[in-house]
């Protein structure tokens, strides 16, 4: 199944305009995360890397899943589970390669399901009651017969966008340097 997606995905360049505009009948790739299903516009996907276990990066920001090897490059992956605040999973994950502002990145999901072609008439924008923290990642929803399919906004999943404000990074490095700096102080006392 995933081969078919790859074939379809490869031929197209990632478009810049948002898919979920409502008018077009875009193809949607459905991914699974635990028991929930999410959709991604297929033209935003460059390639699908089969299930792998990304290399964890110690001290990396929360949303980083790890590193994967992709066509001679090392890609940083974003763990969709962590972004959406779900617990981590030890099972091998499927990696979707997306194009971000700072180059390609991987999106780590539990599994890939299918490719749908939902009709634009079924589309509805984000409801106002959505949890504000998660809401920025969602780009509306399709009302399917067997439930709702929440669309993800690939632009918001870009690691460059997920990067915390500079202050947070600094405070992180401060805490680590403080703990080790103490050692050197004490060494100086002797």
């Amino acid at each position: 199944m995933s081969a078919a997606i790859v074939a379809r995905a490869k031929g197209q360049k990632p478009a810049k305009e948002p898919v979920a505009g409502g008018g077009t009948e875009a193809e949607v790739c459905v991914v699974r995360l635990g028991h929930s299903r999410f959709g991604l516009p297929i033209h935003s996907i460059l390639e699908i890397v089969g299930s792998t276990c990304p290399l964890p990066v110690p001290l990396a920001p929360e949303y980083v899943g790890g590193l994967v090897h992709y066509r001679g490059d090392v890609l940083t992956t974003v763990s969709l589970r962590r972004v959406l605040g779900l617990g981590a999973s030890d099972a091998p994950q499927a990696i979707l390669v997306l194009e971000g502002a700072g180059g390609c990145f991987g999106l780590q999901v539990d599994a890939l399901q299918e490719v749908l072609q939902p009709t634009a008439a079924d589309y509805e924008p984000n409801p106002a009651t959505l949890d504000s923290r998660r809401r920025r990642f969602f780009a509306g929803t399709y009302k399917l017969r067997d439930g709702l399919l929440v669309m993800l906004d690939p632009g918001q999943l870009d690691p460059l966008r997920l990067r915390p404000a500079q202050g947070m990074v600094e405070s992180l490095s401060r805490t680590t340097s403080r703990s080790t700096g103490k050692d050197s102080d004490k060494r100086g006392e002797r």
């Binding site: 490059d73 940083t76 690691p159 460059l160 990067r163 990074v169």
Partner: peptide, 19 residues
């Protein structure tokens, strides 16, 4: 040597990654 993405460069302890 393969370069790291900006998010990982910021950790400051790694100069890259390799296969």
């Amino acid at each position: 040597v393969k370069p790291l993405s900006v998010a990982l460069k910021e950790i400051g302890l790694y100069s890259g990654a390799t296969v």
